[in-house]
Simulated assay, not measured.
Amino acid sequence: MRLLVWLWLFLASALSAIEGRVLHEIEGFIADVAPTALIGIKVYSLDKGKVLYERNAKKRFTPASSLKLFTVAAALHHLGGDYRFETKVVSDEEGNCYLTGSGDPSLSALDLIELVEQLDLTLIQGDLILDLSCFEDGPMGPGWMWDEEPAFWSVPMSALNLEHNYVDDTPILEPAKFTGALFKSALQRKGVEVQGKIKEGKAPETCTLLAKHESEPLRELAKVLLKNSDNLYANCIFKKMGGSWTKGQESVESFLEELRIEGLRVVDGSGESCYNLISPHQMVKFLKKMKGSKDLREALPTPGEEGTLRFRMGMLKDIQAKTGSMTGVSSLCGYLTTEEGEKLTFAIFVNGYMKEGSEIKEQLEDRICHFLSKLPCSL
């Protein structure tokens, strides 16, 4: 009995020493790099079922693009991994032809041409009508920066997107009109005469289907979304779950409530909004719940591979994590396996820093991950 007590005391002392080392090292990184920033961190051992380190873990932070984890998981739940966006060409009894969008963020010019090639007609007597009704409200999400210059990562979104709404290094400010003009041009090149005008309107329920294009399955789109942190993909998928920003929010938050994750705010799919608020504790709880999701795990960036972690963390391979970056905001959340095989999950949020974002990422987030990767299994 005395031997067991002695052994327990010895192990408790060893664990306390290692936990003290974790605290000392991470706090040291923070003091070196961003002592005045608001920083929230939680590190949890999935194998041991215990918290290894936490700092401001229950405070809410602006998460930036790490919020996309919630978007993907909720969409996989509500829509399913096999879900495909559909872009259709339909006609009504009055001779009008409708190009009906579904918000597909992956639609390309080649896809549009293939739609035209499916058509067996030579004349459109009525108008060419763009049906954008799948999305109920505007392209700008709540809390987005109004003075943000359009770029590849911040293009306007629409029910009809084409070529990521970015052509010749230039954002397309009116994607639906651009798509409609290109569609009409493709029709004319095929020899189809369009007698009417290009308009916007909703296709009647009684329309006849003439052609249809389907996107890749959602589980494949999720890889583009998370690995490249693609805002257009994220916001189109977010709105597709409800049709509007508010209904998309309700869909994501209801999914999180099913996981018993409450008391947060998710108002867009991409994390561009400053209104989004989540805590490291909530993120780690989510990651614990989703650890068995193959579709989510396979969509996450990994160092050295294509995506936002391609040039980060050097040879550290046993990590899958989502990055986040805005002005004064950085985050990194995901899964890590130590060199001794311990499976961890973690969330790092940094708000209110004045330094270059690259310094926060390399000298704080990446250093923490390298340190965690070398933790002994006895922890």
Rank of each mutant, 00 (worst) to 15 (best):
F10E: 07
G20K: 06
V22W: 09
V22A: 10
V22I: 15
F29Q: 10
F29V: 15
D32A: 14
P35H: 03
Y44F: 11
L46S: 04
L46T: 00
V51F: 00
L52G: 04
K58H: 13
R60F: 00
R60M: 08
V72R: 02
D82P: 01
D82Q: 04
D82G: 11
F85Q: 09
K88T: 09
V89H: 07
D92I: 07
E94Y: 13
E94Q: 06
N96G: 11
Y98M: 11
G101M: 13
S106P: 03
S108N: 06
E117C: 10
L119Q: 01
L119T: 03
D120R: 06
L121H: 05
L128S: 05
I129D: 04
F135D: 04
G141K: 00
W144I: 08
W146M: 08
D147C: 07
W153N: 15
W153V: 15
A159V: 13
A159G: 15
H164G: 06
T170I: 02
E174L: 13
T179R: 08
A181N: 14
L182T: 14
L182S: 10
K184F: 02
S185Y: 15
L187N: 03
V194C: 02
K199M: 01
A203G: 05
P204F: 08
T206V: 05
S215W: 02
S215Y: 00
S215N: 04
V224K: 00
N231M: 06
N235F: 02
S244D: 12
L256P: 04
L256G: 05
E258F: 00
L259Q: 06
I261A: 04
G263T: 11
G269T: 13
N276V: 09
P280G: 11
P280E: 10
H281V: 08
V284G: 12
K289T: 03
K291M: 01
S293C: 12
E298P: 02
A299W: 05
P303I: 06
G304V: 05
L309T: 13
D318I: 05
M326K: 08
T327I: 00
C333W: 01
E339M: 08
E342Y: 01
K343N: 14
K343F: 13
N351I: 04
Y353N: 12
K355T: 12
K361M: 10
K361E: 07
E362G: 11
L364N: 06
R367V: 03
C369L: 15
H370D: 15
F371K: 12
S373T: 09
C377R: 14
